[in-house]
Simulated assay, not measured.
Amino acid sequence: MSHILIVEDESHLADLERDYLKQAGFDVTVINRGDEAAQWLQKNEPDLVVLDLMLPGKDGLDICRDLRKSSELPVIMTTAKVEEVDRLIGLEIGADDYLCKPFSLRELVARVKAVLRRYSSSVEAESQPQSGQLVISENDTRACFGKSCTELTIVEVRLLMLLRKHPRQIFSRDQIIDGIYDDRRVVSDRTVDSHIKKLRKKLQEINPEHNYIQSVYGAGYRYDAEEI
Results as ranks from 00 to 15, higher is better:
3 H>Q: 08
4 I>H: 04
8 E>Q: 09
8 E>N: 11
11 S>W: 01
16 L>P: 03
17 E>F: 09
24 A>W: 05
24 A>S: 12
26 F>V: 06
28 V>C: 15
28 V>D: 05
29 T>R: 06
30 V>Y: 03
30 V>P: 11
31 I>E: 00
33 R>D: 02
37 A>M: 01
40 W>K: 01
40 W>V: 01
41 L>T: 01
45 E>W: 05
45 E>A: 13
47 D>S: 12
49 V>Q: 06
50 V>S: 08
51 L>E: 03
52 D>H: 12
52 D>L: 03
54 M>H: 06
54 M>Q: 08
60 G>F: 00
60 G>K: 02
63 I>F: 08
65 R>A: 09
65 R>P: 10
67 L>H: 07
68 R>A: 03
70 S>H: 05
70 S>Q: 03
72 E>A: 07
72 E>N: 07
74 P>H: 08
74 P>W: 09
76 I>C: 07
77 M>F: 04
77 M>P: 00
78 T>A: 13
79 T>C: 02
79 T>H: 03
82 V>T: 07
85 V>I: 14
85 V>H: 07
86 D>V: 02
86 D>T: 08
87 R>Y: 14
94 G>C: 07
97 D>T: 04
98 Y>W: 05
99 L>Y: 11
99 L>F: 10
101 K>N: 11
102 P>H: 02
112 V>C: 12
114 A>Q: 10
114 A>P: 08
114 A>D: 09
114 A>S: 14
123 V>A: 11
126 E>D: 15
128 Q>N: 14
128 Q>T: 11
135 V>R: 11
135 V>L: 13
135 V>F: 10
138 E>S: 14
140 D>I: 13
140 D>R: 10
145 F>L: 07
145 F>I: 11
145 F>C: 05
148 S>W: 04
149 C>R: 11
150 T>V: 13
153 T>K: 04
153 T>D: 09
154 I>T: 09
156 E>S: 07
156 E>V: 02
161 M>V: 08
167 P>D: 14
168 R>N: 15
168 R>A: 14
169 Q>P: 01
169 Q>A: 06
170 I>Y: 12
175 Q>M: 10
187 V>R: 08
190 R>I: 15
195 H>P: 06
196 I>S: 06
200 R>S: 08
200 R>I: 04
201 K>V: 01
201 K>S: 11
205 E>Q: 13
206 I>G: 12
206 I>P: 13
208 P>T: 10
212 Y>T: 05
213 I>D: 03
214 Q>S: 10
214 Q>C: 12
214 Q>W: 06
217 Y>S: 15
221 Y>G: 12
222 R>D: 07
223 Y>R: 00
224 D>Q: 12
225 A>I: 02
226 E>V: 11
227 E>D: 13
